[in-house]
Simulated scan of single mutants.
Amino acid sequence: MSKTKHERVALRLAIILQYLIEGRRLKIDDLAEEFQISKRTIQKDLNERLAFLEWKENSNGYYSIDLSQLGILTKTDIQRFARFASVQELFPNIDRSFYQENLLQSVQVKGFQYENIKPYEHNFKTIQQAIEQQRKIQFFYTKANEKMGKTYQLEPYSLINKNGIWYVIGLDNNKEKTFCFTQIKTLLVKNDRFETNPTFLQKIQNSDSISHGNQISEVIIKVSAKATPYFQRRNLLPNQEILKKLDDGSLLLQCKQINEMEILPLVQYWIPHLTVISPEGLQGKLVERLKEYLTHLS
């Protein structure tokens, strides 16, 4: 499967960022030749996509940065940093300090298609600042398919974009909760502060799931030999890990801490090549949904 445009840009920016933290001076001509793209595209990378970096004064067309502004970045940090730079249109107008200080902390992007949140710019900034300052937020929220909403108080941990939709992840009386950002109304920041739970924060950062508080600890999936190459090439399921390749060429995959609605639609998409092995009853639930669908059609 070919990479999307955003994936190609993110990969290129990750390499450029790696060069920068190694202390290299970059030249547009050299980068254009390395990546086999036009000089104009490289100029866009440096002057627009990476505009939030404070470039040192260029001499003879070279670009470099003050390494102190990036701090110590891991490989994962660089990849996330680059993904952000490749999808800046996801965000409302946010100044350079947002990227420099908070890019790797309170906001994450998981997926490249996106909803327009410009009308919600104020709430976005308010929640992001509450996360920074470790302050509780209060808001009115109506769940999907429900007529009556209610007021919540939340310790906000992260703003996450998953498959184009923004979510707010946090703790409500120590219970893990996920809220759709655009459904949050009458937002207020409380004076009450909270202590960040590092275990929960790490769980958010390391997981592909956004359904915190309503997850299955482990799902085992069998992949047919015909579909195996696709799942070996890249992770197509959330929190995917390969457990074993079987003698017939099929795979056993493990997905940890995932909501059933994040896994069943994907299994359904790959019918007949994927089968849920455990937990018991999950495959049966999928079969029943398919039966209901066929009954409805008939």
Rank of each mutant, 00 (worst) to 15 (best):
S2W: 06
S2G: 04
K5V: 07
R8E: 08
V9T: 06
Q18N: 05
K27F: 03
I28Q: 00
I28A: 01
D29N: 05
A32H: 01
Q36R: 04
S38C: 05
S38P: 05
S38L: 07
T41E: 01
I42K: 02
K44I: 13
L46A: 01
R49D: 03
R49P: 10
L50D: 00
L50C: 00
E54P: 09
N58F: 10
Q69R: 01
Q69T: 00
L73E: 02
T74P: 03
I78A: 01
I78Q: 00
F84K: 03
A85W: 05
S86Y: 00
V87H: 08
Q88P: 10
P92Q: 02
I94S: 02
Y99R: 04
N102A: 08
S106Q: 15
V107F: 11
G111S: 05
G111T: 04
Q113H: 13
Q113K: 15
Q113D: 14
P119I: 13
Y120Q: 09
Y120A: 14
E121Y: 11
K125I: 07
T126P: 08
Q128A: 14
A130F: 07
A130S: 07
I131K: 11
Q133W: 09
Q134E: 10
Q134K: 14
R135D: 01
F139Y: 08
T142D: 00
T142M: 02
N145D: 02
E146R: 06
K147D: 07
K150E: 15
K150P: 09
T151G: 06
Q153G: 15
E155M: 08
E155T: 11
P156K: 04
S158M: 10
S158F: 06
I160H: 01
N161Y: 06
I169R: 09
G170P: 11
E176H: 07
T178S: 12
F181L: 06
Q183H: 13
L187E: 05
L188M: 11
K190I: 14
N191T: 15
R193P: 11
F194W: 03
F194Y: 02
E195L: 10
T196N: 15
L201H: 14
I204A: 03
I204E: 05
Q205E: 08
D208W: 05
I210F: 13
N214D: 14
Q215H: 09
I216H: 03
V219C: 01
V219S: 02
V219I: 00
V223I: 14
V223E: 11
A225V: 07
A225I: 06
A227E: 05
T228W: 12
Y230I: 12
F231S: 03
Q232A: 09
N239L: 04
Q240A: 12
E241Y: 15
I242T: 14
K244D: 15
K245F: 12
D247H: 09
L251D: 04
L253E: 01
L253S: 03
L253W: 01
Q257F: 08
E262I: 00
I263P: 01
P265K: 06
Y269C: 10
V276W: 03
I277P: 03
S278Y: 13
G281H: 08
L282Q: 02
Q283Y: 09
E288V: 06
E288P: 10
R289G: 12
L294R: 14
H296W: 15
H296A: 14
S298C: 13
